[in-house]
């Protein structure tokens, strides 16, 4: 056999191999292969996604694989899923970040490039301070800061990040936004900085600080959202304390626009069964997020409302592009 013949043969073989297993899958038997769920962040986002994919795999009868596609504040994962075929085999574990990255000009498309499947969880951010500050609630904190007149250092994970936007909205409502210096930390280091007293306050996730509030090193002066927090039951929400603000981090599943409705319905049903399962609820308490299932239609409203809210807030903060 000479060389050219051989190449032709192997090429032919390759083509035969590739074409054979491809068949047009009928949507009724969805899913026939693993469903890929792109996860945009580490930390709790990744943990929830891993838990969810585990239970959803059992519900769907086909593996749901959570794949980390981090970077660009979520832009990398969103653009991957947006660019994949709308057949229900590539979905994204989304969050408020779809609205923030879009309005900050990092992503050329917004939430309407996806069809919502279901909301999965809500994380309520809390404002944490060092116990030595003697601040116990938001009003007292606002008064103390105004009285002192110095700028307080507030830790955020990055400019334009959720923690930044949420803190800015809260301090605006508290009327002390002029007295705040934001310090970017990247991910995860804020509790140490709070403990050491290098920053005065930081928006934190309940799971990050519950150990410290229990040991008495940190105090949660208020929750930014209104949902109940299982791991920090005593923390009052900002709304209860008289500040008109309600910001939480919702997470859910979305598929590329154009995904067939019956496929979305199947995913939605699997998500519902997973989120309401006992295993998922138990794990959520340990990790520090609240399971909060919403069906596709209601989830769509949440996303759309949020989009308006963040567009507004980002413009106000001078972060919108």
């Amino acid at each position: 056999m000479d060389f050219t013949k051989f190449t032709k043969l192997s090429l032919g073989l390759a083509i035969a191999l590739t074409v054979a297993p491809v068949s047009v899958q009928a949507q009724s038997d969805y899913p026939t292969r693993p469903v890929e769920m792109s996860v945009l962040f580490g930390g709790t986002a990744n943990t929830i996604a891993q838990l969810l994919s585990e239970t959803m795999s059992q519900q769907l009868g086909s593996p749901v694989v959570s794949i980390a596609r981090t970077g660009g504040g979520g832009a990398i994962g969103y653009s991957h899923v947006q660019g994949s075929r709308p057949d229900g085999y590539s979905v994204v574990f989304n969050s408020n970040s779809i609205n923030t990255v879009h309005h900050m000009g990092m992503l050329p498309f917004g939430y309407d490039a996806f069809v919502p499947v279901a909301q999965i969880s809500v994380e309520v951010p809390v404002m944490a301070v060092n116990a030595n500050s003697n601040w116990t609630d938001l009003t007292q904190m606002a008064e103390a800061v105004s009285a002192e007149g110095r700028r307080i250092n507030v830790g955020i994970s990055g400019r334009g990040s959720f923690t930044h936007i949420a803190s800015a909205a809260l301090f605006d409502a508290m009327g002390i936004s002029e007295l705040v210096n934001y310090v970017s930390y990247g991910e995860g280091n804020a509790p140490i900085e709070l403990l050491a007293g290098r920053i005065d306050a930081a928006v934190q996730w309940p799971g990050q600080i519950s150990s410290y509030t229990e040991s008495g090193d940190l105090v949660a002066v208020g929750a930014l959202g209104t949902n109940e927090i299982y791991s920090l039951p005593d923390v009052q929400s900002a709304k209860e304390q008289g500040y008109d603000i309600d910001i939480s981090m919702w997470r859910g599943i979305a598929a590329p626009a154009g995904t067939p409705p019956e496929v979305v319905a199947k995913l939605e049903e699997a998500a519902r069964a997973s989120v309401t399962s006992e295993a998922f609820i138990n794990a959520s308490r340990n990790v520090g997020f609240e399971p909060a299932f919403l069906p596709a239609a209601e989830f769509a409203e949440v996303i759309a409302e949020d989009d308006v809210f963040y567009a507004d807030l980002l413009t106000k903060l001078g972060l919108a592009q």
């Binding site: 981090t70 970077g71 660009g72 504040g73 832009a75 990398i76 653009s79 900050m104 990092m106 992503l107 050329p108 994970s157 990055g158 400019r159 334009g160 990040s161 970017s184 930390y185 990247g186 991910e187 972060l319």
Partner: peptide, 21 residues
């Protein structure tokens, strides 16, 4: 890539892929 602290893209030339650095 995307600068995590300021949230601004650096040397990405407008490409979403380059944001990951």
């Amino acid at each position: 890539g995307l600068d995590a602290l300021e949230g601004v893209p650096r040397m990405t030339f407008g490409s979403v892929q380059m944001l990951q650095g």
